[in-house]
């Protein structure tokens, strides 16, 4: 995906063809759903990723960041090991922040759904 394709106005698309990202004896199909600004950053609203069962959320998000570029990465991560406060990642409907954060293992059977969404800044002032 080139940078220009992620700019505004590009029609959202769905990647329905599984994208093999790793090989392993037990592979997991991860359905990734993008919401909010991540649809624009990724240029699509969902895709399928396959990766070894037990891979961490960090590995998945890094893979996506490699694919979609620095802007996507900067939106998701503060540092390599710290998730941005403005991203809400749901793993099978559960907030990754209340699981094990980036170290949450993806091991649903047979599929796992990961939603990468927007968590607005806490509307505080002061």
């Amino acid at each position: 995906m080139s940078a220009s394709e992620t700019e505004m106005g590009v029609a959202r698309e769905r990647a329905t063809t599984p994208t093999k990202t790793d090989t392993g004896t037990k592979e997991l199909t991860v359905e990734v759903i993008f919401t909010g600004p991540f649809q624009e950053l990724a240029g699509r609203d969902q895709e399928i990723v396959t990766m070894p069962t037990g891979s961490t959320l960090q590995k998945l998000l890094n893979l996506l960041a490699d694919r979609y570029g620095s802007e996507f990465r900067n939106y998701v991560f503060i540092t390599e090991k710290i998730l941005s406060q403005e991203v809400l990642v749901l793993v099978d409907g559960l907030n990754a922040g209340s699981l094990k954060g980036l170290q949450t293992k993806l091991e649903g059977t047979p599929n796992t759904k990961v939603e990468v969404g927007f968590l607005g800044p806490l509307p505080v002032g002061g």
Partner: peptide, 24 residues
């Protein structure tokens, strides 16, 4: 100030990062 959590839920669900606290 009491509104911040439900309000964050709304703006997040809507998908806007644009919030202002007025004069603060």
């Amino acid at each position: 100030t009491y509104s911040f959590m439900p309000l964050r839920a709304f703006v997040s669900a809507f998908g806007t990062p644009n919030f202002t606290a007025g004069p603060a």
